[in-house]
């Protein structure tokens, strides 16, 4: 039985790792009561502000909610392509 599933999903990826990843994300969303849509909107708004000052490589931007120590953190990585001219 297990082989059926393993064959189906590929043996390398353990299902418990997938469960853990899904659960962590799920609990964060439950605690914050934010929908994926709202998070997408927040991302859009924050990027809008940053864009006024920096040119960001948006393809590589990482934007997620995660557990850091005991807290939920908004973790972002926004690779800067260049600083906008006319700043200041």
């Amino acid at each position: 039985m297990r082989n059926t599933l393993k064959k189906f999903f590929g043996a390398t990826n353990q299902s418990k790792d997938e469960a853990k990843r899904r659960l962590k994300l799920l609990l964060i969303h439950d605690q914050l009561d934010l929908t994926p849509d709202q998070i997408e909107n927040m991302k859009h708004d924050i990027m809008g502000v940053v864009r006024q000052y920096l040119v960001i490589n948006e393809e590589e931007a990482d934007f997620r909610l995660d557990h850091v120590d005991e807290h939920i953190a908004l973790v972002t990585s926004l690779p800067v392509a260049k600083i906008r001219e006319n700043n200041g």
Binding site: M1, L5, K16
Partner: peptide, 23 residues
Amino acid sequence: EAEDIIISANRGYPVSYLPNSPV
């Protein structure tokens, strides 16, 4: 009772989709 059920819950992939699963 089957392990398939636990694994499929881990994956978010109901066993009814699996053609070879007895459950």
